[in-house]
Simulated scan of single mutants.
Amino acid sequence: MSSPVRAWAAPVIVNLVLGIVAVIPLWFLMMFLRNHPLAELGLTGRDPTDNDGVLPWMLLLVPMWAAFLGLWLPVNSLMRRKREVTRRRYWTFGSLVVLSPMATLLFLIAVL
């Protein structure tokens, strides 16, 4: 029987690496949300050079997120089967770990 730390080392490392990859789609999604839906609600200002509409954003975001999720979901499904933990707990943990590089980057940008 392995220790809990050793059992969770592989999912943490894999999700951190995937989280570094996820910074790019998350950043583009954040830019899209800031320039279109949130700007329409009056919560943010629109970038004055972004005058092409939503189509270029969709052409960028949809394949990018499809590629990322096409990698992240199967890898984590395979890893979850090897762990004796509930589905909800594993996916919550994996989601938090994969979002941690983006959260760290946003924190560093805000602080510096």
Results as ranks from 00 to 15, higher is better:
Met1Gln: 11
Met1Asp: 08
Ser2Pro: 09
Ser2Tyr: 14
Ser2His: 15
Pro4Arg: 11
Pro4Leu: 05
Pro4Val: 05
Val5Pro: 00
Val5Trp: 07
Arg6Glu: 12
Ala7His: 07
Ala7Leu: 10
Trp8Asn: 06
Pro11Arg: 15
Val12Pro: 05
Val12Lys: 01
Ile13Asp: 11
Leu16Glu: 07
Leu16Ser: 08
Val17Phe: 11
Val17Gln: 09
Val17Asp: 02
Leu18Gln: 06
Leu18Glu: 05
Leu18Met: 15
Val21Cys: 10
Val21Glu: 06
Val21Arg: 01
Ala22Trp: 04
Val23Ile: 14
Val23Trp: 07
Ile24Phe: 13
Ile24Tyr: 13
Pro25Trp: 01
Leu26Ile: 09
Phe32Asp: 01
Leu33Val: 13
Leu33Tyr: 05
Asn35Gly: 06
His36Gln: 08
His36Arg: 05
Leu38Asp: 00
Leu38Pro: 09
Leu38Arg: 04
Leu38Tyr: 00
Ala39Tyr: 03
Glu40Leu: 14
Leu41Arg: 12
Leu41His: 10
Gly42Val: 13
Gly42Ile: 15
Leu43Val: 07
Thr44Asn: 04
Thr44Gly: 06
Thr44Val: 10
Asp47Ile: 15
Pro48Asn: 02
Pro48Trp: 05
Thr49Cys: 06
Asp50Pro: 03
Asp52Trp: 10
Asp52Gln: 14
Asp52Glu: 14
Gly53Ala: 04
Leu55Met: 09
Pro56Lys: 03
Trp57Asp: 00
Trp57Val: 03
Met58Val: 12
Met58Arg: 06
Val62Asn: 07
Val62Ala: 05
Pro63Phe: 04
Pro63Asn: 00
Trp65Ile: 00
Ala66Arg: 01
Ala67His: 07
Phe68Val: 06
Gly70Leu: 03
Gly70Lys: 02
Gly70Ser: 03
Leu71Val: 14
Leu71Pro: 11
Leu71Glu: 08
Leu71Trp: 11
Pro74Asp: 05
Val75Tyr: 04
Asn76Ile: 08
Asn76Trp: 02
Leu78Arg: 14
Met79Ile: 07
Arg81Phe: 06
Lys82Val: 13
Lys82Tyr: 13
Glu84Lys: 11
Thr86Ser: 11
Arg87Trp: 13
Arg88Cys: 15
Trp91Arg: 05
Trp91Ala: 00
Thr92Asn: 15
Thr92Gly: 13
Gly94Ile: 14
Ser95Asp: 02
Val97Arg: 02
Leu99Arg: 07
Ser100Met: 10
Met102Asn: 09
Met102Pro: 14
Ala103Pro: 12
Thr104Asp: 08
Thr104Arg: 04
Leu106Pro: 08
Leu106Thr: 03
Leu106His: 03
Phe107Ala: 06
Leu108Trp: 09
Ile109Asp: 07
Val111Thr: 11
Val111Cys: 10
